[in-house]
Write a protein that binds this DNA or RNA. Sequence first.
RNA 1: GCCGGAGUGGCGAAAUUGGUAGACGCGCCUGACUUAGGAUCAGGAGCCGCAAGGUGUGCAGGUUCGAGUCCUGUCUCCGGCACCA
Length: 877
Amino acid sequence: MSDRRKPFPFDDFEPKWQAVWEENSTFRTPNPGDADFDGTKPKFYVLDMFPYPSGNGLHVGHPEGYTATDIIGRAKRRQGHNVLHPMGWDSFGLPAEQYAIKTGQHPAITTAANIATFKRQLKSLGFAYDWSREIATTDPGYVRWTQWIFLQLYSSYFDEETQKARPVAELEAKGWTREQIDEVRLAFVHEAPVNWSPDLGTVLANEEVEEWKSKGHIVERRPLRQWMLRITKYAQRLIDELEPLDWPEGIKLLQKNWIGRSEGAEVEFTVAAVSNRQAKVTVFTTRPDTLFGATYMVLAPEHELVSEITTAEQKAAVEAYISACATKSDMERGDLNKDKSGVFTGAFATNPVNGEQIPVWIADYVMMGYGTGAIMAVPAHDERDFEFAKKFDLPILQVVQPTNDSNWQGYTDPGIAVNSGFLDGLPTLEAKAKMIDWLESNGKGKRRIQYKLRDWLFSRQRYWGEPFPLTWKDGYHYAVPDAELPLLAPPLDDYKPSGSPEPLLSKAREWVELPDGSIRETNTMPQWAGSCWYYLRYCDPSNSNRFISKEAESYWSGSSVKVSSVQCSVEEDSKTENLKLNTENSPTGMVDLYVGGTEHAVLHLLYARFWHKVLHDLGHVTTKEPFQKLVNQGLILGEDGQKMSKSRGNVVNPDVVVKEFGADALRLYEMFMGPLEQVKPWQMKGVEGVSRFLARVWRIAFEQDEAGEWKSTGKVQDVPCTDKELLRVVHETIKKVTEDIAKLSFNTAISQMMVCTNAFTQAEVVPLKEFTLLLDVLNPFAPHLSEEIHARLGGSGLLSEKPWPNYDEAALILDEIEVVVQVNGKLRDKIRVANGAAQADVEALALASTKVQEHTDGKTVRKVIYVPGKLVSIVAN
RNA sequence: GCCGGAGUGGCGAAAUUGGUAGACGCGCCUGACUUAGGAUCAGGAGCCGCAAGGUGUGCAGGUUCGAGUCCUGUCUCCGGCACCA
């Protein structure tokens, strides 16, 4: 392939146009306050999930989403929008640090080199990013504000009444003590069993454990003091405020399930403790209606009351069981799904509703992290309790009558209460309500909503992350003053983890120990911190006074536009009220379109929403949600239909594709493969196909002479288009491409441009005006090629800056149309009629068709259905 | 197990409110130009059949003049969650 002739000289003009765009700052987006800012234009904020700049460089999955957003951004810009389409780097992260451990080289050096590679590769694809807004989460100017936002969380609490974050200063003013305030901060210290990885030298969030385990790292449970973020306070809002967002329903559901809301009740049981005291054990249940059927109780092995209630006879067995569980991770506990294990504590609890004495067991199928870490077991109507009861021969008592003929044993669906005293005869839903009322009025329990979502474990013991801007003195923590931010980590001689949970930064004694005797917090933030708010920083990337200016925030949120549109439409007072309410509750995502992979469906997208809501509550941002519309691009598989991976050897390097076929061909192929959201395999032959298409467009205008120079074909001429059919195809193409871009249906837009190109190829003469219209709509897809042809044909200015064309409605109308004729539902003939022909004429023509008559012969025509311009359906028998 | 998504040619895929199934591209076949063709251009093709014709959107039913599209049941594949009480 060394000297293979290029089908068109992309290797020559692609770098050329990239340089032209860069020199002219073609894609620079002015901000409010800039001299060239035009506030009358609507804003459009289109965002890519920024990459982690790994040492491997770009893979073909990256340009899939990036090309999609680039096409939309380029089209929107030409349609008169101020388009914000930025790019940056999620540049903290473990690989750079792992490399530092091996080589002793500071991670910043590796990171900078990787960013340079990514940037070169992205630029080679001609993306219309505003590179003046480039950010990296590792930049000191960025870290500063990540730390500032953390301090906002640290100095806030969640006000239950308004369901909003408020500054803790308000509590101080009310006379709260330091200890009380530390209990409610959104960022707080907590000692809890965490996922500790000795070989990574850090703890991990629950959500991250799987990922690192699959990479062969060890993760174990151990109790440690850690910084947590109180995301659970936002559980309900994170569910409710998801509703109006324009996200795929599947992703919304994934988040809802992750948050995992359940309605139920807590019920208090009394347990006789060894010391003859009465211990209270609270359980959470979603089925308070089955309380009469609770035949035993189970505590999590880690439950605080276990040692207190265990009898002397059972002590040894209980302790053995607990220590066996401690060595098991959550995962292993889950793996043993089917095989239940547990030990009797020797204690008995009193069922509050009927005074029955029920045995108290401990078992690892009850987890400490959810609900109260204790359950009432109703084996008749819960699968897990049922299995456990069978295994340990515990009583199974029916309290729900199935509504169908299923066996009541293990029946978990709603039914009718039986053997349940005052609940007897009530359907499950009503029985639940009645039982909760009874519990509340008797002081034995209360209504409760429980979420699966846990608070976010926010500290890491790594080096390559944002240090917490906090100091400690006399057992209290203090915020580092804003003026001292960013607080950067000092370089270390040695980045190796110690194997103990002591953070790496504690090695830097001089940095840790402050003159006044206080010491620095040595934990660092997880990689998520930087990606939680980067979309805000793009709006005002170099502001050194605020994380985002009020003006930039307001403009890029679309707030200014919304206010004026409301004012225009207000007429009556009552309406004003409604409109205000609607504005308050209206979809309020800041980013108009966010494109990225599904792997971030819960983590990044949940964390970013949480931070955004805190910033919103504190008055720093006007929108409630960060991302209005979300689209997940589908994974690109290798040519073998398998996930791309080095070990399989099926990875496609975009650099190779660009070298051989050009950036436009790569862009076009990625969009032509199929729907954006779909998982689809790579086919190099397909790249060749779209490359051929681009070459056909090129060859309409140019051909190669003997010397290999590209010369005009003379086919494109500045003459009026006399071919009505050709004109129709061109305008159809403008219409379809415009609509398809808006629908993100890029593959069909491309196929229409292929149809149009084929029509031009077959034409004797190609009118310049119409050919330029094709280039116009091809431009966002293949910006280099379209720009080059446009320039060579004498077009003025940059095509990338030209207003988007409109199609001519009149050109779409056909003189004659084809109408399909069906007899008894089967296609029998096609007839050509004048466009707009009267129904009676078309029907008569259809009935007169010989092919139709062959099938109606000897039958009576019962009915004739006419779909204007489409078909005639004849019913005959 | 639970929750999502998807099943259409040899392959990637198209198909307004139900209205010509397979657009567009890959691969394949034929022809033209050519020393050559892995370039380009013109044409062909779902499947069965020489043809007329029949048949066809995972499978089985249903509604309808008409179903890839709507309804009922069922199978398979992919993704996520997974003892959440």
